[in-house]
Every structure is written in structure tokens, then in C-alpha cells.
Write a protein that binds this DNA or RNA. Structure first.
Lengths: 230, 230
DNA sequence: GGAATAGTGTCTATTAGACAGTATCCA
DNA sequence: TGGATACTGTCTAATAGACACTATTCC
């Protein structure tokens, strides 16, 4: 069944249809970017942008639906995805009653390079256009979640290449927290945890090269002793 | 339209119906309790218990639906309610495809007294029966959320009467965190914040009466300097 | 040698956590 | 006076946060 048919039926029945919307972040050139897709749904949403997403197809969980829709828009596998919140204001979609299960997703620079976003654009979060539906609100919620979570988990690794330097790691924190951090304190804290390991290599640069590190825990999100605010 | 009709239509169309489920906690006799309602839905769920909740009626948000369903089951107003997570595993409801937006709710001893739970029972969380649907999983998620949130917010006030003693407050923390806390350190920390104010009264007891306090902030959930673990 | 970025150590103030005895009320 | 619970203070170890200079690489 096509989405338009769903919409029709749902609208007639006056019940809600469930969909997923995904806020995909990545850090490019020290700026947090969101992935947006064109939206053109007369009569309410004309030539706008919105979040990638879509209906939850038959016999799939919302998680699976989010993964599938993402994979269709950005040709990348193994993306970090976590459920954010569900948005259900009656008028959030002017076309018909619809409920959106929103997801937060992060992609690394490596994935960003591989990705071919023919169906969308990457926009810096402080240069967002006016968005369709309640997608601005969803993005705000995602930013808050990311800000909160980066200080007490190792989630930053989902925004970095496998190998990274400490200055790069620090910049990710600064970009998300929107404030400068002291280099010495930052290094001290991170090196005192067992979160990262030195790789023993460097990259070619036109100045003094930095040591490369990697996260020791492959994928589990662990909680170090709470970092109030770095 | 009745819920059974919804179910029929939804089942025929093979699309998902959205509902809300609410995990209501309260602390009685130093034990965390959950509110459960009888569930009897042949052929899969016979004489079981489950969370209060139900479908999201026409033109209401999930928040409103959760409030309404709660008010029907427990005759109390102004209940604390926050969205927890949305559960959407395809087989979570054996009758038909259904998605549940789960809520966490807290009620105070004052509300607990007023409440007339003719339609359900309060069960200690470590004596839960086997529950219908995926409601055990939802409760686990709610407990985790509560445990996490009590250490960095003033959410405990939603589980206490307007006026309370420091020993009472401490017991709420101990019951939720499931470990004893040092009385002196606990008092020190709480009194060093501006979270609570002394009321200057005591209650009649058969031993030395404790000072009464109240939370200074009416309803907003504020974040004191992070408390790692009390 | 200059440009650019990486890397390093100390001090102070605050906080976390361990720990035991006294005070107050009632019967 | 005994039972029950409320209330109080100190010490130590760890952590947070402020702060400025040296090192390395490339050109």
C-alpha cells in the first residue's frame, strides 16, 4: 500500500498513522550539520525541507523503519540510531492525523564521505530554513539530547572517525556544547579514563602532527564517572 | 468509534494503531508500587494484569490521551506525567499491530490517599505478576528512567506530600536507588542546595518529631549541580 | 626562523564519602 | 528512664577549574 492510500484511509477514519522521522547529525568543518530532504506536499508544504523518514511499514518495528528510511536516503550502513521522542500534537501534520516517532542519528566523517546524499542536503544547525511539519521542534529536542548525552557517555565516538586526535575530539565537544573548553583539562580528563587508547600513529600535516587515538569500547555506550560539564 | 472497531479496521488494513500506556509509581510504606489494571482479552491474555492506558482518541495528543486514561482509572488530577518511550515491536500485541507510547507518572502520598482505585491494584515492583503485552519491559524502562532522573533533578517531590521530613525524603531516594544512604551526607547535600525550605513545623509522633520541609520550586524540574550518586 | 598546531604541570577550592555520638520527644 | 527517631561535624582523598609556556613539524 502506498503512503497516499494510507493517508486517505486514515483521514477518513480519523485515526492516527504512525511514522518515523530521523534527525541525522554530523560534524563537518567544526560545525554541526543536519540532513534534510526536500518536501513538496500541496497545499500546505511547498518547496520546503524536512527530516528524512516515512511510514512504518507492515510488521516492522519503528527502529527498523527508521533504519530502512535512513538507508534509502543516505547510502550508509551501521548508523547510530536512538529513539528520541514521539510527537503527536493533533495539528502537527496539516494533511492528516499523524504521529511521529522521532530518532536521533549520528554519522561519522568516514560515513559522511562515503554517503551520496542525492536526495537531500546537509545544513548547519544555525542556518536551518523554516521546516515542514513540526520538524524544527524535533531538531531542537535532538540537539538537547545530544548536548546532554555527550557529557556522560562516549557517544562522541559516533561523530568521529575510527582514529582521531585529541584536538579533533575536543572540537566535537566544543561544537556541540557551544563553548570553548580548556585544552589541558580536557586532555587530562579524557586520558584519565579508559575510554580511549593511543594508536601510536600520526597523520601527515603541515605543522606538528597530533597523536591518533581510538575508542576502546567498540559500540556499547558506557558511563564514566559523571562529568558535570567538562 | 469503539476500540474493538479500531482494532478490526486496523487489523484488516495491516497498519498500526497508536495507544498510550502509563506506568504510575508511588511510594507506600517505603516500597515502590506500580498501578495495574486487570486485563482479560481472549484468546491471548486471560485474567492478567497490565498497565492503564488505551487508544489515542480523535484529535488529542498522546499526552492528553495519557492524562485522560489515567484520570479515568485513578480519580486524581494534576498528576506528574512524562513521556518515556515508544514501543513498537511487531508482535508486542498478539491481537493486532499496535504501537504504544509509554508514559512515566508519579503520584504523591496525598494523591494516593484521595485516589479510589476501584479499577486496579497497587503492586510492589519486586512482586510483579506476569503481565500482558510487553508491559513488563515498559515498567523496567520506567524504573531505569526514574533511577536516573532522581539523582539530577528534583523529581522526588512528585512522590512526596507538600510537606515532608528529611528522613522521608531520604527514604524515597533509598527505595528508588535500592541502597542505603548516609544520613549526614544526605542532609548536608540537600540543605546546601536551595531545593527545599524549612517550614518550621513538625508532625505529632511518639518520638522526637522531625522538621518539615517543602520544595521551593513549585513545578519546574531544576538541575542542581550534578549529584553523581549521592 | 617563523607559522601553525600539539602537548605539558601545578595550585587552589570544592566536593564526595567515611565515620559516631548527642538531642529530643513520648510513654 | 528507656525506647525511638532526629540531628550534628570533621577529616581525607579526589576532582574541577584556572592558568602559560614549551615542543614539534613544515616551509
Amino acid at each position: 500500500m502506498k503512503e497516499t492510500e494510507f493517508r486517505k484511509i486514515v483521514s477518513d477514519l480519523r485515526i492516527a498513522i504512525a511514522a518515523v522521522d530521523v534527525v541525522v547529525f554530523t560534524v563537518v568543518n567544526d560545525v554541526l550539520h543536519v540532513f534534510l530532504t526536500p518536501v513538496h506536499r500541496p497545499p500546505h508544504y511547498l518547496n520546503m525541507f524536512g527530516l528524512p523518514g516515512g511510514v512504518i511499514s507492515d510488521s516492522k518495528s519503528a527502529d527498523e523503519a527508521a533504519h530502512r528510511h535512513l538507508k534509502e536516503k543516505i547510502q550508509v550502513e551501521d548508523i547510530y540510531l536512538e529513539q528520541l521522542s514521539t510527537f503527536s500534537a493533533p495539528n502537527r501534520d496539516k494533511r492528516s492525523r499523524s504521529i511521529s516517532i522521532a530518532y536521533l542519528s549520528l554519522i561519522t566523517p568516514e560515513m559522511f564521505e562515503k554517503q551520496s546524499s542525492s536526495e537531500g542536503v546537509w545544513v548547519p544547525i544555525d542556518k536551518l530554513p523554516s521546516l515542514a511539519y513540526d520538524h524544527s521542534e524535533i531538531i531542537s529536542a535532538a540537539i538537547e539530547r545530544l548536548k546532554g548525552k555527550i557529557v556522560y557517555t562516549n557517544i562522541a565516538k559516533e561523530l568521529l572517525s575510527t582514529h582521531f586526535t585529541l584536538p579533533e575530539l575536543q572540537r566535537v565537544y566544543e561544537v556541540i556544547l557551544k563553548r570553548p573548553l580548556d585544552k589541558r583539562n580536557f586532555r587530562k580528563k579524557f586520558l584519565n579514563t579508559n575510554l580511549i587508547k593511543e594508536v601510536g600513529k600520526t597523520r601527515k600535516t603541515s605543522h606538528r602532527p597530533a597523536q591518533l587515538y581510538k575508542f576502546s569500547n567498540k559500540d556499547i555506550e558506557i558511563i564514566p564517572e559523571v562529568w558535570a560539564a567538562l
